[in-house]
């Protein structure tokens, strides 16, 4: 039972981190109808800066710079690539983002080499015990931080002028423009927010029990794609639920894999994609989505 609770809480925690990534992915899709395949590279860029800078400026300043830089890079992609590209189809833009992803990721993996970079976080490998349940501090901080960021985002999305402009533009860009909404600003801010969230997620993907940031970190980030897709690419609620589903599934599958040897080793890594496939077979638009993937 305690194992189950530990796995569940860890799953929710990692799921909340996936949700941060998926949320950014969904915001970008809502604002620009572009599937951003460069998302994992934004995450890697943010995480890399934190890892490199903390010995120089301290952890918190490094984190701030990492988040700001990821937001800036994302905004730059929007401004230089997405906005300029005068192409008819959003799927072409999606392919362009693959190109951007390759450029950024290749350069960063070259910089990282075979190193495993510590994140310099203050939580280290401390654990907390509640009754018989043992949890890593990092998992608790991740859960609390992700929950706070997601709540803040959803409140802003619902109540601020920025949120109203985002939703209006997502629903009907031409009419939003007719109402005076500056679409360029809306889409650039969406990219920036998504980049910032990805950098925060990078931190929590690389702290204990993970040894640190290495060149495979962006592969870990890929698990958030099924989270976004199974929730429905254009649904913020979907991103949250999708993130949690993926996180808990992965945690449970890894935790109990000895009882499920018939499924093979490493089922925890495959599980997110299996869950996604099953859900898409039943609901092609994802759990909460309104636009089918075929439209992408």
């Amino acid at each position: 039972m305690t194992t189950f609770v530990e796995l569940l809480v860890n799953g929710i925690s990692i799921g909340a981190v996936y949700a941060l990534i998926a949320l950014g992915f969904v915001i970008i899709f809502k604002a620009t109808e572009v599937v951003n395949f460069a998302h994992a590279s934004l995450l890697l860029a943010g995480g890399y800066l934190v890892a490199r800078l903390w010995p120089l400026v301290g952890f918190w300043a490094a984190l701030l710079i990492g988040v700001a830089a990821a937001a800036l890079v994302a905004a730059a992609i929007e401004f230089l690539v997405i906005r300029r590209a005068d192409v008819a189809s959003h799927s072409v833009l999606a392919i362009v983002t693959i190109g951007v992803d390759i450029v950024i990721t290749t350069e960063l993996t070259r910089q990282i080499g075979t190193d495993v970079l510590a994140m310099g976080d203050p939580w280290g490998s401390e654990v907390v015990r509640f009754g018989g349940v043992t949890l890593a501090e990092t998992r608790i901080v991740a859960l609390v931080t992700a929950a706070a960021l997601i709540t803040a985002f959803l409140l802003a999305f619902k109540y601020t002028g920025w949120g109203v402009a985002m939703r209006a533009a997502a629903e009907d860009a031409e009419t939003a423009a007719l109402m005076g909404v500056r679409l360029g600003r809306v889409s650039m801010s969406a990219w920036a927010v998504a980049g910032g969230l990805a950098a925060v997620a990078a931190l929590f993907l690389c702290v204990f029990p993970t040894p640190g940031l290495d060149r495979s970190t962006s592969l870990v980030a890929l698990k958030a794609f099924p989270a976004a897709i199974l929730g429905g690419l254009d649904s913020t609620t979907g991103a949250l639920v999708g993130g949690l589903v993926i996180g808990v599934t992965e945690s449970m599958m890894s935790g109990y894999q000895n009882d499920m040897v018939f499924l093979g080793r490493g089922i925890g890594d495959v599980a997110p994609f299996l869950v996604m496939l099953v859900i898409l077979l039943i609901r092609p638009a994802g759990l909460f989505g309104t636009k089918e993937l075929a439209r992408v």
Binding site: G161, V164, A168, M179, V181
Partner: peptide, 10 residues
């Protein structure tokens, strides 16, 4: 919210 969207530029 629709009305709000109309007044965003002001």
């Amino acid at each position: 919210e629709n009305l709000r969207a109309g007044g965003l530029g002001r």
